[in-house]
Write a protein that binds this DNA or RNA. Structure first.
Lengths: 213, 213
DNA sequence: GTCTATAGTAAGATAGAC
DNA sequence: GTCTATCTTACTATAGAC
């Protein structure tokens, strides 16, 4: 997230710019969600945003960058939700590392439903060239950060476990985003969390092996 | 896989066609692996194959279909390798369901190294629109087939476990394909199999819960 | 600094001769 | 079945008004 929210220096009106960006992003969300990246046309986004092609290129640099910006907005939102849940749990006196991880993961999955259009879009693979790599890297970073809660070392097996959890969360997101109703989605979240909790045993048996002695 | 290998009726020379298809697929493999799907140009593939654009469209229908055909060839090869390994294990007297699953999974992962260019290509997401869905569906089918070895029922949790194993195998493939050397790849296979074996406990605790009584 | 109108260009797809 | 010539689409760049 670039630190330019509401930024203003020497009396310039950045508010207009920010508004324009939001209009573009909202339009892009609708168009990309329906057509996917490759099939979507820049003109359609521009039309829906009530702006012009040149303006779009001025603000984002291109079709691919517009897509990336859209996704970054979603990602930051998701991460904030998860971080808030962990903070709340901690404030409530939760200290068990895995329980904290659980709280974050649950909030993350629950927030997925309201952004299901973006999740489906991204996981259907209708994305710009190279985007999937970025996506996976970001997912990995998130799990890694949260994995630190578990005080995991950097052994090969632990790195595989990070990868496993990353995949699992990604998969869970997709399943939840594809649910038929909000109720089904909630049930899926519960099921996913069940599996995650059961994986605790596997993860902890590894972590114990790391301890000295 | 269409059943047209060597087929000939009314004196037509299908052998030439099959040869042309192979030339296109080999050329496509090289070009797509270097540039990814979106960045690759049809002309470059045609040039490398020593053929023409029209011929390519005659045989495959388009750029996206060429890509899909290339991947199907790889997929069938991988599945055959895994199936052969399971059959061999069974012939050697292995009856434990999980051990059979293991044998197939290990062969599958080992075969990945020689096709690492395709694996990287596919998992980098530089694929045609809608391809990722196809890819995931295929992976799911494979795990499902193998999961039947474990006599798993169709409960919600088991479906999640199928998803989990699918993700894991996909992730494992990527890691192996990105290894620096054949030796590193082999070590990774071993690590991945370690984790898989440790997951056995989680899976089987679920399967037991399915049993009547 | 912000945006509109317009032209350039590349590449996937197709028609029809051989 | 094979190939050349052509068409069409849509991303991208730019000049200049406000």
């Amino acid at each position: 997230m670039t630190a330019r929210s509401g930024g203003r220096s020497a009396g310039r009106q950045w508010s207009t710019t920010e508004q324009t960006r939001i209009q573009f992003l909202d339009a892009a969300r609708a168009v990309f969600a329906r057509r996917g990246f490759a099939e979507a046309s820049v003109s359609e986004v521009v039309e829906r945003a009530g702006s012009s092609v040149g303006s779009l290129y001025h603000h984002f640099g291109g079709k691919a960058e517009l897509f990336t910006a859209l996704w970054e907005r979603y990602r930051d939102e998701q991460h904030a939700v998860a971080a808030a849940a962990v903070a709340t749990a901690r404030a409530d006196g939760v200290t068990d590392p895995f329980a904290l991880f659980e709280a974050g993961a649950r909030a993350y999955l629950q927030a997925t439903w309201s952004n299901r259009d973006l999740v489906k879009l991204v996981y259907d693979g209708d994305t710009p060239p190279g985007f999937q790599k970025l996506l996976r890297q970001s997912g990995k970073e998130w799990v890694k950060d949260n994995f630190r809660l578990l005080r995991a070392s950097n052994s090969p097996v632990n790195r595989v476990l990070v990868a496993l959890l990353t995949s699992f969360m990604g998969d869970a997101r997709r399943e939840i985003a594809s649910a038929r109703s909000a109720k089904d989605a909630q049930q899926l979240v519960d099921t996913m969390m069940d599996v995650l909790v059961r994986m605790r045993a596997v993860i902890e048996s590894e972590l114990l092996a790391d301890l000295p002695g």
